[in-house]
């Protein structure tokens, strides 16, 4: 059963990649990236159970952290053209 779930998550990751490839705007691509990252977290968790190694969960958490920080960083960059070193008081 968990193998079915793994396949389904992989399929959904493929769909997200199609959207990232098709665009058309940069925001569609970031949205697809974000969805892809969430699915990666879930994929790692499911595979960890499938292979009987639940310590994979630590990796899943790291992916969740990186995904969030990554999306915010890419957004900042696509909005301001830099990572916001010099502008004070600006919020995303």
């Amino acid at each position: 059963m968990l193998a079915v779930a793994t396949g389904a998550v992989l399929l959904a990751m493929g769909l997200a990649l199609v959207r990232a490839w098709a665009g058309p705007t940069v925001f569609d691509r970031i949205l697809a990236l974000n969805a892809f990252g969430t699915k990666t977290v879930l994929l790692i968790a499911v595979i960890g159970f499938l292979s009987g190694r639940p310590d994979f969960l630590d990796l899943a958490l790291v992916y969740a952290l990186m995904n969030f920080i990554g999306v915010i960083a890419v957004l900042r960059f696509s909005k301001y053209g830099h990572f916001g070193d010099h502008d004070e008081g600006e919020t995303i």
Partner: peptide, 14 residues
């Protein structure tokens, strides 16, 4: 499995 079905549905919606 139900959750993974919803994930695929989300992908289709995307």
């Amino acid at each position: 499995v139900a959750g993974s079905i919803f994930i695929v549905i989300g992908g289709i919606g995307l």
